[in-house]
Design a protein around this nucleic acid. Sequence first.
RNA 1: GCACGGGUAGCUCAGUGGUAGAGCGGCUGGUUUACACCCAGUUGGUCGGGGGUUCGAAUCCCUCCUCGUGCACCA
Length: 919
Amino acid sequence: MAELSKSYQPQEVECKWYQRWLEADAFRGDETSGREAYSIVIPPPNVTGILHLGHVLNNTIQDILARRARQQGKAVLWLPGTDHAGIATQSRVEAKLRKEGTSRRELGREKFLAEVWKWKEQHGGIIISQLQRLGCSCDWSRERFTMDPAYSRWISRIFVDLFNSGLIYRGKRMVNWCPVSLTALSDEEVIMKPQRGKLYYMRYKVAGTKNRWLEIATTRPETLMGDTAVAVHPKDERYKDLIGKFVWRPFPEAKIPIIAEDSLDPEFGTGVLKVTPAHDKADFAIGQRHNLPIIDIFHPDGTLNALAGPEFEGMDRFEARKAAAKKLEAMGQLVRVEDHENAVGYSERADVPIEPRISMQWFLRYPCVPEATNAVDQDEITFRPERWKKTYLHWMENIQDWCISRQLWWGHQIPVWYRKDKAASLREAENLDLSAVARGDLHCAIEPPSDPENWVRDEDVLDTWFSSWLWPFATMCDSDQKSSPTLKKFYPTSDLVTGPDILFFWVARMIMAGYYVEGQLPFRNVYYTSIIRDRFGRKLSKSLGNSPDPLDIIQALGADALRYSLLKTAPIGSDVRFHEERAGFKGGEGPKAIKQFDECVSGGGSYPQVEEGRNFATKIWNAANFRLMQGPPTRKKVRRSIVDIDILAKLDTMERQIDAAYADYRFSQIAELLHAFFWGDYCDWYIEAVKGDLRGADPARKSAVLQTMDTVFGRFLQHLHPFMPHLTEELWESLGFAGSGELLMLTPLPQEHATKGIKNLTESQAQAAALYQAVNRARNLKAEYNLAAKKVRFLLAPDPGHAWITGELATFALLSGASSCDLVSSDSEPDTENAPAALTPIGKLYMPLAGLIDVAAEKARLDKELEKIAKELAKSESKLTNENFVANAKPEVVQLERDRLNEWKDRHEQLLDMIRKLG
RNA sequence: GCACGGGUAGCUCAGUGGUAGAGCGGCUGGUUUACACCCAGUUGGUCGGGGGUUCGAAUCCCUCCUCGUGCACCA
């Protein structure tokens, strides 16, 4: 066995093993396999996106699940891909064109799309290669992109199906309009943000009166030019008499009716509402009820149009707000302006206030809502954490039709063609449905019409989520096939790992699509990941510059370190803070500290959480190196010592706990178990305990130790592998566990317990525990006399029943840093005056100091310990003298308390004895 | 407004009825031949406040404070 390099260099090792896995085709999902299937579809990242920490967390979890499933002997498919991210990608390419002095309109649709594809070719592979650098074991041969021709056919097919079944319809509705992206958005893409705005009180003159005015409060005076009524509550005594009369809209001047509306709150403002049906959802509904005209005073980009009047035409909406208020003021009709807080909907992508706007859009009445609701309600699909179930059910119960058309070019163009000679009127027609197809006016099909010269295609594309919702099955089977071997083997998928932020966007819709298209659920478990925040709890964002580049971290500390650390600190379902240190940042909390932090340069700092993972990797590397230095075992026959047996038993326990933790998807616990076992049990205790045997002259003993080490190390590497795949694969090979080149990632987990066939298991464990505790006491004793670094001589007076310690004295001396440890019989125990003593589970331990001891200090030390014990003793006693406790507590709890009491009593007595001897 | 989640050591977090934990940090020692990305020892918490249930509460119930999330919102 060759020795390893002095320190672990992750970069080289990680890249090497990823290549080896690819060469071995180890990630392939075999649809012909007879083994149990395990499958995941990746939440497709944005094709032009780059990796952030959220991706790292999400994809590491998927990789862990996939790798563990392979180790369990399952046929695993982790199916990767990307989505085309309509708005995000299109706006990025448009920004690029703007820089080049042109625009998409100037280029035209065809040339523009060519530009987007060019962009995609340049940037589309980045995130995939980043996932590979992270170690993701996706079956890359099956990588899908939502704009692939085969995948696109699925979109058309589903659109046509839904249209033919009457679930897709078109209508002129109030939609969320993004004045920057120039498209409609679904309700889910609108984020409500609290705003510090103003409430403008203005007055309209009541028509036909000399001097009667109606005072109205509004946050949006710039829309008054589109007002077609004012409304009051029918029971409002102040205005009751005015219902049915008219007021004068100040500009453009017009007589508009005063109507009665139950829906409004007489307490708000003045109790009078200006009604602008074209620019407010609620006002639109009022307009419908009262047959009010609709006056749209906005251009699509949020500037005002000619209907607003010449002085406002072309003005931006926020400028117009000030201008309208100013004009009202000039007319003497602005009463006052108050500060006012309200919530305004923002476009998720463009981060500008959305504009409610009436436009012709395509809508979907969701299919299979009852099935999708039921599946989650009845736990056929389980959510983790479970609380998201409630959120899901609430959304499903209040589900609204989905606006699926987008006024973009990048995406799946709607498969609808209008007969050319009627196109103008058809485009404006409400309620287009199958009858239009029957009349021969409309063509809705996967394929274009056979006489394309007579048709024009609908220009809109579909919402990107309208393609992603088909992801679980559309990636596995062509749209013109009923099924495929892959679909048969791997659908429904096993687990879905995603963020709760896209529960409605994606998860809920996939469930409905799964039932609609495949007649069954698309996945069985949904694991919602944590949201990663910065050290102050802020969301990571590009504009804040608080989002570390994972590739920098990987470069500095290794992919395995990042994977392990993130998983270790990511609890199930709550947010996690990712700590970044920056050069020059002084620390602290609060606004001042945050500001100072933001002013420091990102990058070049450090990530303490990830350093923990890097340290762990190094520790394992060094332990492997130590193992290699010992050479191979020489004999077959083993006689295991108590510490050998003990470490195997601890391995056993860890394996059981890991199994249980996987069943609950408790990844941070698994990471912790692996750490505690390897660093604590194996390195700090076991290796240190057997160093004597390794240096010793007994080849049988040495061989037993080496075999034990190999068992433990090998199995540990297997369990660690899903978290740190590269390092474990490297050491698996270096330590000679790979046999004739078998990959660790494809090696099944052992079926049998490591302690199988060991007879004196419990006894050995108890003895090892006693030995280790005695060592702790010995080390304490040395430290208290400032002798931690010195070799001392110990004397041990074993209690009855601990004769076994005779064989372990060398180990005890080694671990406690003693030159020797000798046994004394209870009648020849030294005086505590000459030898400070401690109680151990084995017996009294003395550290003779040849008259060096400070009697007073020793007495104080023992008194302190006595006090501690007396406290515990009293606690135990009070419990046991409480009749209610003895009567009501579980018998085993009472027994435990009794044992504890006896132990305290024992130690108490012995301590008293020691103190007495001290004089 | 409704619903949900969090508040445990200086920091990040485990811990769902029975002796309060880990990592990082702090402090004291340490180049004994795997490892200073290390070792040994040590410090540190009326488990957000209050009330209740229970023999027993960080854990269950009520209430308040506080931070966060989702949904619905007054124009």
